[in-house]
């Protein structure tokens, strides 16, 4: 298995080099600080790589974790955020909250109907509650979707 610390440092070095060249054509007073920082990052990460080549215990990035739960949650957040643009804040939040409250609920296998109703109820309360506060009290318009 490739060492995760080394992979990380290589990515950071690439980002730092990219940043160094990206500001290269700017005036000195705008470019000097990011360039110095980028050089420092490269040096530190080379040291980091060196340190991990010398001695390292190979460890998996995600040991002993509920991997499927983690991925579901992460994907859920990404899809939720993208969906806001399409179906609007209200509908997307309602779906996201009720779905995840249900998925994470421990009772959903024992008492599926009760768990389902509970989740929908709590999700609606939260969504409409916050929507009302932001839209009408704080006067912050929450995003409308393209479709709705």
């Amino acid at each position: 298995m490739v060492n995760r610390n080394i992979v990380f440092s290589i990515i950071i070095i690439l980002i730092a080099l990219g940043a160094f060249y990206n500001v290269g054509n700017l005036e000195m007073d705008s470019s000097i600080f990011p360039q110095v920082t980028a050089v420092i990052l490269v040096i530190l990460n080379l040291l980091h790589i060196f340190k991990h080549i010398r001695k390292d215990k190979k460890k998996a990035l995600l040991n002993d974790v509920n991997f499927s739960g983690l991925i579901t949650m992460a994907l859920g957040i990404v899809i939720y955020v993208i969906a806001i643009k399409l179906i609007g804040f209200l509908v997307a939040s309602l779906i996201f909250l009720s779905l995840f409250m249900w998925l994470l609920n421990e009772n959903r296998k024992k008492q599926p109907l009760k768990a389902f109703i509970q989740c929908i109820f709590v999700a609606s309360l939260i969504t409409f509650g916050f929507y009302g506060i932001f839209q009408h009290l704080f006067l912050i318009p929450l995003p409308q979707g393209v479709w709705f």
Partner: peptide, 17 residues
Amino acid sequence: SYLAPLIAFMTVIGSFS
């Protein structure tokens, strides 16, 4: 099961507003 989605929701509404 209620907390995790609620916090996710609040991070979204917070960072947007």
